[in-house]
Amino acid sequence: MAQRKERIDRGIKVRSDDVFALTSWREMAYLAFPRVVPVVLLFLLGAVASIYWERVLVTTCMFALLAISWDILASAGMVSLGQALFFGVGAYIAGTLNHYFGISPWLTIPIATLGGGVVCTLVLLPVLRLRGIYFAMVTMILPLMIERVIEATKIFGGTEGISGLNTLGNVHTEFLVAAVMVWVVLFSFRRMMSTDYGLLLKGINDNDRAVMSAGMNIYYYKAQALFLSSAVGAFAGAFMTHAYQFVGMPVFALDYSIIPIASVAVGGAGTLAGPMLGSFILVPLSELLRGLGGLRVVIYAVILVVCTVGLPEGIFHYLSRKYNQFERWVKVER
């Protein structure tokens, strides 16, 4: 007598999928719980944390944004190995605007967000026509090369970078902006991915020929996804520049490429919330492991490989399954 595990959606999940949820407090609570609790929790954490850990939370939020931006791209079939490109371009735009033109951070960050989105989209536009690993190759190589070029040509402060940039105020302001931003980005993009526009992006990932034969210019839509993703990445870069009051070659460093991908691997791709969850595990963890120095990157890389190969599902999918479904063993007649 063999056994088989059966997974069935909970009744409340099925009912909540429709508008009926609005008629029952229980069902509304069921829907609201997984959304409200993390939001409240993050703000509570920010309120009670020491200055040091509040800074860590700010950094975490920015890595979460980078991870979300990676996931947006991946949903449309583009695998990036260089979120650092988006991050760095945003950082340098904000930094130079603030340093050379004295523009306030409250203006440089929005400008860098849009400008970074435009610049990165234009640079990567030709790659969109190619499939497979070309995108990964080009995105991997560009940040590393730009880093070297800045070193060689000594533009924008060269190896020294530009320091003494303005901040957004104190760390509490930074935390508030970061936390609000991360939730706004997460929920709005999750909403977007569940509309038909999101379906279209996922469709391009699944089978671009079918999308084409429906009369749609997939490159146009891919470029849009690229813009959205790089703008989110550029925001993170611009924000961190003002938080550190410094911009320099390190903004193109591998860290900004590898931690977002590792977060996605841990949290689970394709959900946007998964990558964010991943960053909230990995970044604070790496703060705790600070004593290990160089070994941290090794640990990241190993986590990355183990999660990609061994746990392709990711934590978020696991949690959402536990929340929405129940499992039972059923006997199978042979």
């Binding site: 526009y197 379906l199 699944d206 020929r209 079918a210 429906a214 749609m216």
Partner: peptide, 19 residues
């Protein structure tokens, strides 16, 4: 090759978005 992750009818939504 359908859009595997989507329900059958949602597969058509993509085509129905056509300009």
């Amino acid at each position: 090759k359908p859009f595997y992750q989507l329900p059958a009818f949602k597969n058509l939504n993509v085509a129905l978005l056509s300009p």
